[in-house]
């Protein structure tokens, strides 16, 4: 009889935990002792992917550093919903300064830690975090400076594809054809333009910083592994997490994780990690799907599926996904799962 290795649990390789796993192999989120770095009572919308992504990432960082994390946070939903006076949801030392300076604030904290510690390797680690707007647009200068100097900061971008906190306007991370308040679904080319794109992970890689990774809230284990890996490096690190926004995307609050999964499975959002500018691993597609499956449930793309479907636009988006699949080698492989 052929021997079947009892690998991980057929009932839940992709789940948060599993009663059958030895505790050390479970995700941080499975533990009753997880930090809940961002606590209950925050004012994020129902089903907010950013609230979830932030807890996933910061809890993982806390775990990796034994609770020694200081965070700097850009203006945006995450900041607004977590710290309206008189309550904060954060259970870690946390500072919000401005919209566009988070990477620099983090650099300052790291510098302070270094000089205070009087050693080259302070125990406390610094995480900077912001939305896609705060990262790819207004905070880009400070971020690039932080990368270039290789400051000892892990920067995490929660990409929900737009300026959500101000009411869903377009950012440079807003995908083509998506409707936002500043790229309305009107006129001959409704929704956002098909620009040149500004995929920040690739730009981060061009800085050849020690570690760059992408992740989604649909794959907790992968996300946690990346935060853990990031914490093994000193210097500038960048993790770009796709966090669906029910409000901005026009999706059901219960579909947040599903949407992230679809983004990855369709090739719309490549999930990979790179060290010193070179790709080290990619998360292959498990069950290939056409981009339409991803687009259709989102109201921001509703104009593509009207009486006369925008076949060409959809094909254009499919071509972009196909390009990702080629470029990053995302095609489904046997034995990967």
């Amino acid at each position: 009889m052929s021997f079947q290795p009892v690998k991980f649990y057929q009932t839940g390789t992709f789940t948060v935990g599993n009663r059958l796993l030895p505790p050390e192999e479970r995700s941080v989120q499975a533990s009753t002792k997880r930090f809940n770095s961002i606590n209950s009572g925050h004012r994020a919308c129902q089903g907010c992917g950013e609230a979830l992504g932030a807890r996933y990432a910061i809890d993982a960082a806390m775990e990796a550093t034994d609770g020694q994390v200081i965070a700097a946070n850009a203006t945006g939903c995450l900041e607004v919903f977590s710290t309206p006076y008189p309550e904060t949801s954060w259970q870690i030392p946390w500072i919000h300064s401005l919209f566009g300076n988070t990477a620099a604030v983090a650099t300052g904290i790291a510098a302070a830690l270094k000089v205070k510690g009087l050693t080259q390797t302070p125990r406390t680690r610094v995480v900077a975090q912001g939305g896609d707007g705060g990262t790819t647009d207004i905070g880009f200068g400070c971020l690039s400076g932080m990368f270039e100097r290789n400051d000892d900061v892990l920067y995490i971008c929660y990409d929900n594809g737009g300026y959500m906190n101000t009411g869903v306007q377009r950012s440079s991370a807003t995908p083509p054809a998506a409707r936002t308040a500043t790229t309305m679904a009107v006129g001959p080319a409704p929704g956002n333009v098909f620009g040149q794109g500004k995929f920040l992970p690739a730009i981060a890689m061009a800085h050849e910083i020690p570690y760059v990774a992408t992740a989604t809230v649909a794959d907790l284990r992968d996300l946690e592994a990346k935060v853990r890996r990031a914490m093994e490096f000193r210097g500038a690190r960048y993790i770009h997490i796709l966090v669906p926004c029910p409000l901005g995307w026009g999706t059901a609050s219960h579909d947040t994780i599903k949407m992230a999964r679809l983004a990855k499975e369709t090739g719309i959002f490549p999930v990979f990690e790179a060290e010193h500018g070179e790709i080290k691993s990619v998360l292959a597609i498990r069950r290939p799907l056409p981009v339409e499956d991803y687009l259709r449930p989102q109201k921001r793309y509703a104009h593509l599926f009207g009486k006369t479907p925008a076949v060409e636009t959809i094909a254009h988006i499919q071509a972009l996904a196909d390009k990702n699949i080629r470029k990053y080698g995302l095609q489904a492989r046997k034995g990967d799962h």
């Binding site: 290795p5 057929q10 935990g17 995700s27």
Partner: peptide, 28 residues
Amino acid sequence: TNALFEARRCMSCGNCFECDNCYGVCPD
């Protein structure tokens, strides 16, 4: 080992198998 492998293929349909997903995925 094969029996264990096979048992673990059960998806526990409709009955909590303590996968911790709900515990993990709640944004709140």
